[in-house]
Every structure is written in structure tokens, then in C-alpha cells.
Design a protein around this nucleic acid. Structure first.
Lengths: 192, 192, 192, 192
DNA sequence: AATGAATGAGCTTTCATTCAT
DNA sequence: TATGAATGAAAGCTCATTCAT
């Protein structure tokens, strides 16, 4: 195994350790020492891979890759199933559990860098959704009295609202089910 | 001025100082020393009023009083305006700005006590909304194919989704406007 | 009830509260606030009766009054029973339990004033015991090869050793029994 | 010098600094900051070596190693000299001065962990002494009317009584001398 | 005389970060 | 590159004591 691969492996181990700890504790109360220990490296080694805790969280946000989602943009066919696919893809990409979701929100809310990155993610998602909605409106599938960017925005409100309330619930409901139901209603609101 | 009044005043000053600091910094990075200083009291005095930062945040959550909202439950008339009133009331009660909203979410996500209190708030809100929705369904105002508790849940998803995304935006949009637009769509989804 | 009596009563209540708390917690971890609360007075009131926690402990040491003991000095009769009476008197005066004993030692060890007072107590006790021993030696009851002040000192070693080890034991042995046995041996060592 | 050695050195420096400060002030009034400063390390470094002041004191109690004493158990010869050797060994092991002795007692009396550890020490010492006494009784050297475990207990009363009273004295008497005299009397009491 | 709110120095403890090895 | 001991600023919090009422 060459040096490059080994480095990548360590980086991955650190990220996984962080995710695992964030999931069971809160973001703030997870220390770099705990992460390093669980990753099997020394505390100092952490800083060879991430300049700070802030940078780590920015990197973890990168897990929400929307590359796959962008591809859906140019796919043909009716809108609703495509949007359901986007949602499905967002959920599938990342094994979210309540603790981890809370931790990520907490981290984003506490770091300017992470907040900035989150804004970019939101903008990217909008860039994917807006054309879809415009296309749907042109096809006569969706109501036209509301601007496409507003509808996209609302879709995100719905998505993140479901996500954060779910993460704060006590019991073990599946996120998928809640998301499906919520968007079912959302689609009812926007279709002709 | 008697002692009791003075104490109440100090308590208020501390809360206001905290709110003000939470609004301009994050919750985590606001220290008790800063709060005390801004409130014009000694650090130790803070602890005469709140056993911990946690307890302070729980107290601040209490600002979301839903007493007014509960009164709306028994008011007559069509549903949608009443729900709009609820939203309006929730927003009016508390001079939310982005920084403060982010700080409150951060605090709730980082403290078990505050999380618990938030769950209670959610439950209370549901208790108000569900009967309204049921009444709307009986009157034939709302679709009946979706259970009332689910619709209530969705309303909360929509509300909190709008709230958190708004709080994370960079620019100065008004929350009120976003909320009105979002719920306009939401209502379209649920009416017959 | 006149003012003087009332004041005395409050003072007693504070002392009793302190003793009670010292018995169940350690001296260091008992706060003046706790004492005041249990005594049914305000925190500030404590300082109207005792200038400091130090002064309180000095006052409590006063419980070991040796006035009664001094009277035994001039009593006639054989030595051993008289010394047993002294021990009995010391134990009787004060409802010692392990927690309280530990707390008192802790307090004495941590305060210069209390330490000084304890030295005086020791000196007073010696002043009582030495003449007794001298008389015992003259009567031929006790060995003469050891100076009387040394024997007195040894008696105190024996007394305080029993006291402190007993207070540090886990189980519920009675102090009285241990003391009787220990001194039984002690007397065997000093009699002719 | 390798890392391991250096660490051991720092640990030793911290312990020595603590002992030195305990000797001149009381245990309670010695702060970790003082210890760190005297040891020439940062405050935080203290906590890399000891989780708390409590743990430090437990570690210091470990200075009373009784390994050497245990070896005496199986030595042949008359009892009294052997017991004198034990006392001598206990005193020699640890450069006791009055301040430090007081501090140790104070620490033990104020910490549950340290108290527990002290009980173990007492139990270990009894385990050494009892067989010796039994052997002495079998050989006809010691009186048989008193159970061996009681005699062992009394020896400890005598030892700790001497120790604590000595530590509370103002003047500079040597502990050794007091101990020798006290036990001289003690032995008189127990021999046939 | 009694109160209890206010004080603030000082406590233990945490932890991201640095840096010599 | 990996290490982990050292750092030290800063955190939350305690509590004996003061003092205006």
C-alpha cells in the first residue's frame, strides 16, 4: 500500500470516528482527543489532517454531495417522481441518525465557515430544483402563479423542517417515512 | 422600589443581556462573564438567578408562551385565517432575529434539558393545532384523506423549516414574509 | 421571652444545625448557607453570631468542656477508676458520631485558630491528668520509672488514637467499647 | 533522556511540589495552581498526571508502602524487637513533618476515596501485626487473655494517636522519640 | 436584629492547539 | 509523518463575606 493510500485511509478513519462520536454525543461535547483515540491515532495527528475542528465539520458537510442530484436535472419525465428521487437520493447518501443530525446542525450553527458552506449547499440545491420546477411549470404540470425560485425555497423549508424536527423527536420514527408523507402534501400544494 | 421588584429587574436585565449577546454571537461562544458584564452584575450574581447556562436557556425558551395561541383554539370562524393568526402570534411574541434564532437552536441542540423543553413546546403546539384541523375537516374545509395529527405535524415541519433556513440566510429578508408565502402554499395543499 | 434569651436560642440553633450537617457531610463541604437554612435563619444572620466559619468551629470545640473533669482532680480514692471516670465523662459530654468526629478533626487541622484552641484543650487535660498520675505514683499504685507527664501524654495518645481510628472505620462499632478495651490495656501497662 | 523518563520526572516533580506545599500550608488551602507553579509546569499539565487533587492524595498515600513491613512477618526471633522494627520502618519510609502529616490527615478526612484507601492500609497493617501477636502468644511472650486482633487494633490506636497529637503540637519534638516512649509503655502492657 | 441580593476572588477543570522528539 | 506531553487561556461555578434595606 503506498503512502498516498495510507494517508487517505487515516483521513477516512478520523472522519468516521468523528461521525460516530457526534452521533452518540453532541458536537460541542465531542473532543478532538476522543476522535483521535477512536480513530487510533494520536491527538497531534488529527491536526496533520484537519487544521481545526471547524475544518473537519466543513469536510463532513461535504458528505452531502449533490453530484448525483445534479445528474437528475437533465433526466426526462414527469416532475414529481424526479423530485422524489432527489429526496430519496439526499437521504440515501448519508446514514443519518438523530444524534448525528443534531450534531451537524449544532456544528453548522456554531461555525461561520460551516454556515457559509451550508449556504453554498442550499444555493446548489436551489440551482438544481429551480430548472426542474420551471420545466414542470412549462409542461403545465405545476401551478404557474408562484415563481419557480419560491417553490424551490419552499421545498427546502419543507425538507429541513422535517429533518430538524425529526432529529429532535424522542422516539424512533424513520425519517424516510416522515419525509415521504410531508412531500406528498407539498406536491399536492404545488400541482395544478 | 422594593426588593422583590429590584430582583425581578435584575433577572430581566440578565435575560436581556443574554438575548442580546446570543443575537450577535453564537450561544456556545457567549460566556456567562459576558452576560454578567453586560447586565451590569458580578459573575456570581448570575448564579443567584440561574443555576447554569442550561437553565437560562430553558427559561428563555419560556418566551415562546403559547397561552395566547391556546385561546385561539375555541374561536369560531374559518380555519385558515385562524391558523394564520397562530403563526402571526408565534412570530409577534418574540423579537426574533437571525443570530438569536440560530443561538436558540444551538442551545436546544446542545442541552438535554432544553431539548426536552422543546419537545414539550412541540407537543403543546400540536395539541392546539390538531383540534383546529379536525374541526376544519368536519366543516368540509380541509381534505379528509390525511389524518389531522399528520397535518399538524406537517404544519410544524413547515414552520420550523422556514425558521431555521431563514436564520441561516445571509441577507436581510423578513421572516414574516417568508412565513406567509410558505404557509400560503401549505394551505393550498391541505384545502379541499 | 426577653431579647437575650432569644439571641441565645438562635445561637444554639445555628450550632446544632452546624453539628448536624458536619455529621452527615464533611466540614469543608458544609456551607454557611446550608447551616443558616437548617437553623432557620438568613445567611447574613449567621455573621451576626459568628464572625466566620473558623470562629464557629472554635466555639464548637468549646463543647469539650473539661470543667467537670477538673473537679475529679481532687476526688479521693484509687486512680484507675478516677481515670475511667474522666474518659467516661469526655465521651458522655458530647454525642460523638463518626462523621462529626471526622469533621471536627478536619476543621481543627485546617484552621490555625482551631488548632491553637485544641492545643489549649490538650494542655488543660494534661494539667488534670498529671497530678492524678503523680498522686498514683506516690501511693504506690503506679510505676515510678516513667515521669508523670509522659504517662499523661501517653494517655492522650491512646485516647485520640482510638478516637480518630474509630471515626475512620466503616462499620458501626461503638466508641465506648473500643475506648474501654484500649484503656484496659493502657492501665495494665502503667500499674505496678 | 527519553520521553518516558522525562514523564516520570515531571510526575515526581509534581508530587514533590505537592508534598512541599502541604507541609507548609494545609491541604485544603493548597491550590493546584500553586502545585503546578512550584513544579514548574502549567496548570493544565497537572491534569495530565492526576485527574484531581483527590487522586493525587491517594497516590501520595501510596508512599506508605508496607511491602517492607510484610517481609518482617516471617522473620524469626522475639516479638518486641520485630514490632519496634515495624514502627521504625513506618517512620523511616516517609519524611514526615508536622505540616505534612496534618495535611495528609486532612485530605483523608475530606475525601471518600482517600478514606477508603486509608482503611485498606489499616487492614493491611492488621494483617501483618495479628500473626506476629499470635506467634508471640504461642511462644508465651505475650499475655493470652486478650485476643490477638484486639492487641493489633490497640497498637494502631497507639501509633495513630501518637502521630496525630505530635502533628498538632507546636514545638519541634521528634516523632521518633515520642513513638519509642509510647510503644515502650504499650509493650509493658502486653507482655507477660 | 434580620435579611438575602450582590460580590468577586478564586476554585477546579477543559481542551484546542503547539512543538520538540 | 506520527507522537503525546505541555500549554494556558478561558470556561463554569462556589461561597464566605458585605451591606443596603
Amino acid at each position: 500500500m503506498n503512502r498516498e493510500t495510507k494517508k487517505e485511509l487515516t483521513r477516512t478513519r478520523i472522519k468516521e470516528a468523528a461521525l460516530s462520536l457526534f452521533a452518540e454525543q453532541s458536537y460541542e461535547s465531542t473532543t478532538i482527543e476522543q476522535i483521535a483515540k477512536l480513530a487510533g491515532v494520536a491527538k497531534g495527528t488529527f491536526f496533520n489532517y484537519f487544521m481545526s475542528k471547524d475544518e473537519l465539520i466543513c469536510d463532513l458537510q461535504g458528505l452531502f454531495v449533490i453530484n448525483e442530484i445534479i445528474k437528475l436535472k437533465d433526466k426526462q419525465g414527469p416532475l414529481i417522481p424526479k423530485m422524489q428521487l432527489i429526496i430519496f437520493e439526499l437521504l440515501r447518501q448519508f446514514p443519518l441518525n438523530k444524534g448525528l443530525t443534531r450534531a451537524l446542525f449544532q456544528a453548522i450553527l456554531g461555525s461561520d465557515k460551516a454556515l457559509e458552506k451550508h449556504r453554498k449547499l442550499i444555493a446548489d440545491l436551489k440551482d438544481v430544483i429551480i430548472p426542474l420546477v420551471e420545466y414542470g411549470q412549462e409542461c403545465g404540470e405545476l401551478r404557474k402563479e408562484m415563481p419557480a425560485d419560491m417553490i424551490a425555497q419552499l421545498a427546502l423549508h419543507t425538507y429541513f423542517g422535517t429533518l430538524i424536527l425529526w432529529s429532535m423527536e424522542e422516539d424512533e420514527e424513520k425519517l424516510n417515512e416522515q419525509m415521504v408523507v410531508t412531500f406528498d402534501l407539498f406536491f399536492k400544494g404545488i400541482v395544478v
